[in-house]
Amino acid sequence: MNTTRSFLRAALVVVAATLVCAGLAQAQDDASILDDLTTPKTDYVSASFKATRIVNGHSIEQMKEGDLDVRIHHRFGQVNSGPSALWGLDQSSVFFSFEYGATDWLMLGVGRSSYQKTFSGFTKLRLWRQATGEHSMPVSISALGGADLFSTPWPDPGAQNFFSSRLSYVAQVLVARKFTDAFSLQLTPTLVHKNLVPSAVDVNDIIAVGLGGRYKLTNRISFNAEYFFTIKPVVEGQQEAVDVLSFGVDIETGGHVFQIVLTNALPMFERGFITEGTGAWGDGGIHLGFNISRVFTLY
């Protein structure tokens, strides 16, 4: 009798204790239920760079559907042009463009450069996004294809000049990774094809690799650097083109991004700055410049 009773009592204590624990665990359960509901299966990385350019070259970023980016880029003359040209500030080269997000993964742009009176256009296609979770991906990958047309008059109008000779093309693969909230790096293999080159010794196809990065100094200011290494020696007429090294500071103010630029290339489109840069950093052959981006939401 006594043993049955104490057994019953012990059993009840165990059951009660279990239930108390269950009650205590309940609050924790609620939190984990909500946690499961609000944790995305795949978390896509965004804002690896502040703008669609690192400095001169394209970044992995693109306009979202219905957004239009109006860009005005500007480069002064070379700093080593001396006091008579106010160290380059007397000269200026301009590029402006309209770049539009047709969808979140397709961006189209048209632009005009004062350099060789060039019209240019590009298509940027987002292929993969860096992500963690179910569809994890270590890098973001985009593809860019572009064409440009210089419209300066032919030096010898009497010769047989073809329209197609004015065209050049660029193809790029953009591979970027946002390593931390502040630090992103991008590798950009590039092929530039020119239909017409100045002389027989020049090559029509130029392969280059771009390496660009950004470091966020504050939430709204980042420091960017970019280097394009051309694998084949590029010869433009008598003057040998140089690899282009550029630095920039991005300042973001709501809908605008201002980029203050130092670079040894004057042109502001791919064929130009990758294969036709002429300044040397060591000789002060560098250009101060600005890129201004203003985004309008069309719909």
Partner: peptide
């Protein structure tokens, strides 16, 4: 519980700045 990245804005840039 709310995931901050689930907030959507009409303007994509506003959404990016909201998060960043």
């Amino acid at each position: 519980q709310v995931l901050i990245k689930s907030f959507t804005f009409k303007r994509a840039l506003m959404e990016e700045h909201f998060n960043e």
